[in-house]
């Protein structure tokens, strides 16, 4: 069977989620590999959420917030960014390639950019192949 990467995306309610809605109302087509989860602010994103997605078999995780300075809650996106940098160091040590985890800023008017982002990430993941996180966890589980 063809490899169909699965991306779990966390989109903030005010910018990125609205931008994704705009891609819809503008009928901009993009790859169907993405599963969007709405949160109020990118500042709400916990490392647990991202790790959980990888554990569940996601081939990529995408986090989108408002552009710097545009945060609906003043500065949640900066906090997300700081946390994200730390997490990325950690996930790379875990063997999750850098390109599997992305943080991007999408404004409410950037439907087109969002669609391009999804296509771009899908393409990257296709070339990388499936994530090994889930299968390695399963193997360990069997050994125990």
């Amino acid at each position: 069977m063809d490899f169909r990467p699965k991306i779990v995306a966390f989109l903030c309610n005010w910018c990125a989620y609205t931008g994704a809605d705009l891609a819809g109302t503008s009928r901009i087509h993009y790859a169907p590999n993405i599963r969007i989860i709405r949160i109020m602010c990118s500042g709400r994103i916990e490392p647990t959420f991202i790790l959980k997605a990888f554990q569940q078999g996601a081939d990529g995780v995408l986090v989108c917030g408002c552009h710097p300075g545009d945060c609906h809650y003043q500065e949640g996106n900066y906090k997300c960014l700081r946390r994200f940098k730390l997490l990325q160091k950690f996930t790379r040590q875990m063997g999750i390639e850098k390109d599997r985890l992305r943080l991007e800023w999408i404004s409410a008017s950037e439907g087109k950019q969002f669609a391009e982002l999804v296509n771009d990430m899908t393409k990257t993941l296709l070339s990388m192949g499936p994530s090994k996180v889930k299968s390695s966890l399963e193997v360990e589980h069997l050994n125990v």
Partner: peptide, 13 residues
């Protein structure tokens, strides 16, 4: 569940 703006309107398969 958002199956219009983020699904039926943006996919072709």
């Amino acid at each position: 569940a958002n199956v219009r703006e983020q699904d039926s309107w943006v996919h072709t398969d």
